[in-house]
Design a protein around this nucleic acid. Sequence first.
DNA 1: CCCCGTTATGCAACTAGTTGCACAACCGTC
DNA 2: GACGGTTGTGCAACTAGTTGCATAACGGGG
Lengths: 195, 195
Amino acid sequence: MSLPHAILTALLEKPSSGLELTRRFDKSIGYFWSATHQQIYRELGRLEGEGHIRALPAEQPARGQKKRYEVLPAGRAELARWTAAAQDPKPQRDVLLLRLRAAAVVGTEGLEADLRRHLELHRRQLSEYEEIERRDFPPGRDAPQDRLRHLVLRAGIDLETFWTRWLTHALEEFAELPGAAPEAQPREPAPDTSG
Amino acid sequence: MSLPHAILTALLEKPSSGLELTRRFDKSIGYFWSATHQQIYRELGRLEGEGHIRALPAEQPARGQKKRYEVLPAGRAELARWTAAAQDPKPQRDVLLLRLRAAAVVGTEGLEADLRRHLELHRRQLSEYEEIERRDFPPGRDAPQDRLRHLVLRAGIDLETFWTRWLTHALEEFAELPGAAPEAQPREPAPDTSG
DNA sequence: CCCCGTTATGCAACTAGTTGCACAACCGTC
DNA sequence: GACGGTTGTGCAACTAGTTGCATAACGGGG
């Protein structure tokens, strides 16, 4: 239930067409709420139907033509309502941690390479965030909007920092592990794995 | 595509009935891959159909009767394959960060209370993890399985630590913010908000 | 002029996860 | 011995997000 609100936020920051929104979702907002262009177009249609946004009139409103949207008062009100409403954090889901747990049972073979790959991806993301911080939040910029947006960026930076550290630590542990398949004390009847 | 593998891991650790799995998903594995009993039963049915698990024979196999499952060799092989296969990290989605970003546009009113609530929830989760760490991973336990599982728990602890710190910092910033609605420089045509 | 790649918009089907409810057995109690 | 709460199992419908593909305009190059 958050994509429409992500779009409303983006449109309030700047009225845009579907494609422009898609581009902005590839950075900025997309860092913590990703969406494909298909999702965005579908949602734009819904939001227009609900009277939350409207298409700015264009010269030739034809297919394959840019259509820019702006937020209507009802849309702004809905966004304000949603922002203030209490919401429970939704249950964690992390595939990598699950795979590590599985590896404790079926062995770590093959997993290490993918951990390295993830470490590289997180490092890259981290330096991208740090670049944005240098560019958009130099010391001194402290209007309320800036402080809030900076806060969001800090969360991204700190999360990526956490992952790079954790993955580094995990790889160190892997290096110390005896064999690839830690099947020392089988707890189940150990069925015939050859078939 | 991960729930079946979460279930396979849990069943390899210990053959269980649907309800027992549900309970174990409420702690342990559920900390990073939550699932309801409905999901679990449905998935157990699929896994049985695919020949990855089987129901242990019971005396009276009737409805409303415990049915325990164990993993078959094919299931173990599938889990090993999945664990080793490369997987891209899936795009981030964080509602709280999105709301903060929205608040930069429509004002922070009402958001602060929910941030406090989240802070409390994360603190609670953190102390729960730390309790588990004291109980299950005292110094000295370093069989490969233990080290891997400890690593997973450390991720949970560090993530919760990050969130409590970040939320604390965010609340401090809120306290310094001038008004509730930072609408100083309107960037859009500022539509009539009264209607 | 036609082919082809790029830009821009959009529908339809699929997948995974959530919500709501139903049904049966068991177990204590009034 | 019927009543109501708890335990255990399960289906069906819904929601959100993903994947795959379709359509149209525009702008070169051969």
